[in-house]
């Protein structure tokens, strides 16, 4: 039953999603892409779409994957998709919603405590590794192409985008649009 599996996956994503949207990507990959609910290409496309639309990546990916996964699993009809996107979007915010409401007072009281600070000092290097793994997992044939011509073009686009985002303060949307234009011309 695809819906139960999606609910279970998104509960885990909501509960362990530390470190912001990009760190959450590696969780989404291991929960949603590896079991095959969506393809790697679709996953990358969702990240791109998330960057171009308002709202956090966590919500955007839950809504899109919730819609696309039932269709890929063979449930035909818009209503199955809408049901999936409502479920995933709701479920991904339930654990943090409960924690925000009931654990927030505790954390405010102990915000300078050793325990809280220590735990987060330990999490920090892990979060960097999580974001790194998301990038590594996406450097594959599905995203970079199979022929050497495609791979060369892809590496150039990737390197150029990296340096432009890193050294300028312009919003990433601009670079996604530029990369889209480059793809249209190059292929």
């Amino acid at each position: 039953m695809i819906y139960l599996q999606l609910i279970w996956s998104y509960l885990k994503i909501g509960l362990f999603g530390f470190g912001g949207g990009y760190a959450m990507l590696s969780l989404i990959q291991s929960e949603v892409v590896l079991p095959g609910w969506i393809t790697e290409q679709t996953f990358t496309d969702i990240v791109a779409i998330s960057q171009m639309t308002p709202g956090p990546i966590g919500i955007n990916s839950a809504t899109y994957i919730g819609y696309a996964a039932p269709h890929l699993a063979g449930y035909d009809g818009i209503i199955y998709g809408i049901l999936g996107s409502i479920l995933c979007t709701t479920v991904v915010v339930i654990p943090p919603y409960i924690l925000s409401r009931y654990a927030a007072h505790l954390l405010i009281r102990h915000k300078d405590s050793l325990v809280v600070k220590s735990v987060f000092a330990g999490l920090r290097p892990v979060v960097i590794g999580l974001i790194g793994s998301a990038a590594l997992l996406l450097m594959n044939a599905a995203n970079f192409g199979e022929t050497s011509d495609q791979i060369t073009k892809s590496i150039c686009i990737c390197a150029a985008t990296f340096f432009m985002v890193y050294y300028t303060k312009v919003h990433p949307i601009l670079y996604i649009i530029l990369a889209g234009i480059a793809g249209f011309i190059l292929y």
């Binding site: 990240v47 974001i131 985008t161």
Partner: peptide, 20 residues
């Protein structure tokens, strides 16, 4: 399809930046 073939490697770069 062509547009997204250009966008996908750029998305990888967008994720690499916060690593650094």
């Amino acid at each position: 399809n062509r547009i997204f073939m250009g966008i996908r490697p750029a998305v990888v770069a967008l994720i690499l930046v916060p690593v650094v």
